[in-house]
Amino acid sequence: MSELLKVEHLTKIFTSGFIGGFEIRAVDDVSFTIKKGEIVSLVGESGSGKTTIGKLILRLIQPTSGRILFEGKDILQMSKKELRENYYRQVQAVFQDPFASFNPLHPVDRAFDLISESYLTDVSRDERKELVRDALRQIGLNPDEVLGKFPHQLSGGQLQRILIARALLLKPKLLIADEIVSMLDASTRIDVLNLLGDFRDKYGTSVLFVTHDLALGYYISDTTIIMYRGTIVEMGDTEKVFQNPLHPYTRMLLESVPDLNVKWEFKGIEPEKEEGTVYSLQGCRYAPRCPRATRLCFVRRPELIEFEKNHWVACHFYY
């Protein structure tokens, strides 16, 4: 499989106020690649920077430094026109909140109209209609039931499917799926997730699946990236990361996931660790919470090293 997207030393610093403001390193020197036809899950808790990375790749926000190469071309150098005419034809997204993803003033059809006006200009009106209906059928919706409806008349699951159908219309090379099932009920969640897999199998689309839910990431993805406070702590083949977690943070996360049929031992209450200054920490950002942290961990940031083939970890313990 060849590389589709390459992220190099990506950093995004949010600042607030221009007099005496503070800064947050939401994404701090992150590098990874997405291969063609690969599903990569980007896993992290709130504040890990996972959503920011998705937005950076979509150029919805500008990075502070670093490069994002799409098929070898730096998208940060692309003009707005180039983005519109070329990049967004190949890179699409579905976001977390289905209800916020539709303009409440218009029927849901607008999502399709906007995209076909820009990208399907050579297709006739009737053909477009048929394409939309076809896309809707492919994701298991009855076109007559949803077309012409306003967003508030449909359920979150239906809306999220419509957005996937919208992306399907363009058959993009990369789909950014940002927490797309977190607001759906358990019984509909897995089917929407399966659509991502089907989508990939059918069109070879790569997917960046951003999630906080480890079990979902494990289920759908080939590669997993675990983030903590803006940095990648561990990444690699999903199977390896989950079966042989190396980083203490990954281990702790896995222990915290409620999994059916795995009994929890109640270990008693542990103190809450202060981590207010973590965004400006020189060393490993997990150090304040890490049970194995040494002095070195607070002073120097560990780099990602390849522990075994296709399994990387950023922890001093493995040097």
């Binding site: 298991g140 358990a186 019984s187 509909t188 969640r189 897995i190 089917d191 929407v192 997730l193 399966n194 897999g197 079990a215 979902l216 494990y218 289920y219 759908i220 080939d222 999903t238 199977e239 989950f242 996931v257 999994d259 059916l260 049929n261 795995v262």
Partner: peptide, 19 residues
């Protein structure tokens, strides 16, 4: 049956939701 759990992957065993 629709709940994902460790050891179950799309590639090997597709879970089904409730239509």
């Amino acid at each position: 049956n629709s709940l994902p759990r460790m050891g179950v992957q799309y590639k090997k065993q597709k879970l089904k939701g409730i239509p």
